[in-house]
Design a protein around this nucleic acid. Structure first.
Lengths: 120, 120
DNA sequence: ATGTGTGGTTTCCTTCAGGTAACTGGTTTC
DNA sequence: GAAACCAGTTACCTGAAGGAAACCACACAT
């Protein structure tokens, strides 16, 4: 394999990797859900109340996608009124650093916007 | 201000910061554009050819958004046939670490998927 | 004047993410 | 037996994202 081809395929792999991650995190509520599950397991209704503005349909849908991708675990507890608990898997924990980096940049971006406003 | 309120407002700021960053990077081609500009300034046509599948309309639109947000600088060169050069600003450089983190996770995710397939 | 290259814009169209609201089904409490 | 709680699902609708193709304006070259 020549050097240029190597670079090209490495580059494609790079783009694919980025697309994969972005798809996994795509959807208006995924990151919010992960954020909410950050501090421990939560039930459906608790999640719905904790995440301001989410509809049951969307919450259900995005939880399913997160579960499919192995980031979240769903367990049905056999309590009196049935309860369903969601929690981050060990694998799910590994995306937290990404979210942290994104949040940090966003905070600095805000600061910069305010600085620029004052400078003008 | 009480402790709970502090936590709540810090939490909101966190979500806002994440939303800001995600909006900035939203759009099918933004990250590809930044990736292409990674190695130096590029002209419109060069970008279009370098980014596989992008239409002139989308490229133009997302470049404008990136410029508005200060990540990309557009400069018209007075060459014989007019040439327009796009380049990452210093500020634009600061998003590269985010993209790197996203790419790294995506690569490990791929590896994991392959491992899981073999294990099954 | 005709064509070529550059850097776009405009128009039209399709798809899909996401929202609202109503409904389901099982269980427990009144 | 009615009402309420939990965890969803279904049906319907809308706006925004994005694609395709044509068009535009300017400069030069032939």
């Amino acid at each position: 394999m020549e050097k240029e081809e190597l670079n090209e395929s490495a580059c494609k792999a790079h783009h694919l990797a980025i697309r994969d991650t972005m798809e996994l995190l795509s959807g208006k509520w995924k990151i919010r859900i992960i954020g909410a599950l950050n501090f421990g397991p939560m039930r459906f209704m608790a999640l719905k109340e904790s995440i301001n503005g989410v509809a049951a349909k969307m919450l259900s849908k995005e939880l399913q996608e997160l579960e499919l991708n192995g980031l979240v675990k769903r367990s049905v507890l056999n309590t009196k009124p049935i309860a369903v608990e969601y929690e981050l898997t060990e694998y799910g924990e590994t995306v937290k650093p990404i979210i942290e980096v994104i949040a940090e940049w966003g905070k600095q971006h805000r600061s910069k916007l305010i600085r620029d406003m004052k400078a003008e």
